[in-house]
Design a protein around this nucleic acid. Structure first.
Lengths: 242, 242
DNA sequence: CGACTAATTGATCCAGTTCAATTCATGTGG
DNA sequence: CCACATGAATTGAACTGGATCAATTAGTCG
């Protein structure tokens, strides 16, 4: 995996549980007590556009997305918003050691979640060292993703940012055994803009440019087909422009 | 602490060990086996401008800064660089679960570090659940910092970014019992620019504007005195402009 | 169908970049 | 101790990528 693949890859990759297994440490007891807990745990269903939690709420639960997509964002009093990440099935949201949630989590479409009380998790972790390490690894992966995203927003052009974004979604598809060339966008242009530190107009114009350059096809405004993956990758790497 | 204070605050705050104590969980054995290890651990001295480690190096050690300042950055083949964070005495660097370092760590001035082999740390953590949780909390704090930084770079103007940066350094001084109005900058304009996603010229011009507006005084180019903290805070919050 | 929201496209503007000199600071050797 | 070299910082002038403002146009849902 190249430097840039790793970079873009993790920029949308949350701490999916399957990934943990690959980094397993000698387990003290059950290798997946968290899994067990979640499998038998409480289910929560949230309607499209509704919030799962809000920054400042007491951090009562940790959630795992079962179906649907979630937008995680921060917002300023004056309305400026930064989308920190999008979460998809398999991703955890609400992890962290703070007393309160530090992000807002909004369902982009109808979402089904599994929940575990935060207290239960920390009680389990204070008994089972392998769980603590798994949490550490999960956070470490999220940190790597945030740092890559930081690089993207701090240094890349609009076209490069969008190329990274599309490639990250494409690679997620590939990992899940879905078509990496066909990308469904459950989020609006506004969500993408606030994720990439751009405006909706720039997102729209840049998508049009990518289409004109035959890099992608916009079958619907929520459906992107990647035509020229190689060029998209060179764009993301700053080795090409459109 | 206001929303914005929290935001700027953590944007330069690393996982300083003292902070861990405040979030302690019922310890299984010793509350600070890591501390003990580090106190008696190996010391490493690095000259100014030299690298402590490079992205891609095998992640052999975790380090704690004892004295001096460190710049953590990512870089692209074409030279574009993003400074991810600065580390100061008390901060840990090299934490994470990856096999290799994902960042470059460069000494900004002569640096003294305490080192612990990565293997030793993970062995300790797989026995002591409280250590795993502490690592989890440390990463969680770093993640919060990275997410705040993301917001700053994605949404704020040059003056707002610089105000956030100076306030973060000021608050670090305050936490350490030093003068919060007198800020020593061990990093160059170029480091600050690459941290904030701007250019050296913009940093220089914006510092000049802040001086003209009597918000700060530039006693030397490495020495900033905050004259009007309230205005600097309103700038960082986007409630004022210069 | 009609009302509403999301997306696209066009025209203009501007914050921050780029390019180009100076000026300042810090060594360093004669 | 000074003169000169070198890299860092500042300042100026011109440019530009992306923002802003302003219409359309395309979906979507009662």
């Amino acid at each position: 995996m190249t430097y840039l693949e790793a970079m873009s890859d993790s920029s949308l990759a949350h701490s999916a549980l399957p990934a943990w297994a690959e980094h397993g440490v000698p387990a003290s007891s059950s290798p997946s007590s968290l899994d067990q807990h979640l499998s038998s745990g409480a289910v929560r269903v949230v309607k499209a556009r509704e919030h799962i939690f809000t920054a400042g709420d007491a951090r009562t639960h940790v959630h795992r997305v079962e179906s649907g997509a979630v937008c995680l964002y921060k917002i300023m009093p004056d309305g400026r918003r930064q989308v920190i990440d999008f979460a998809f099935p398999g991703d955890f949201i609400g992890l962290g050691c703070e007393q309160e949630y530090t992000l807002n989590a909004q369902a982009l479409e109808p979402v089904r979640l599994k929940c575990i009380p935060a207290g239960t998790l920390s009680r389990m972790a204070s008994r089972d060292p392998s769980l603590g390490l798994k949490l550490y690894e999960a956070m470490s992966r999220e940190l790597a993703a945030a740092q890559d995203h930081l690089f993207t927003i701090g240094q890349r052009s609009a076209a490069e940012r969008l190329a990274c974004f599309l490639l990250a979604l494409s690679r997620r598809n590939a990992r899940q055994g879905r078509n990496p060339a066909l990308i469904v966008l459950p989020m609006t242009r506004s969500d993408i803009a606030d994720f990439l530190g751009l405006t909706i107009e720039t997102i729209s114009r840049t998508l049009t440019k990518l289409r004109s350059a035959k890099v992608i096809d916009l079958e619907q405004c929520t459906l992107v087909r990647i035509i020229n993956t190689a060029l998209l990758e060179r764009l993301a790497a700053g080795e090409a422009s459109i």
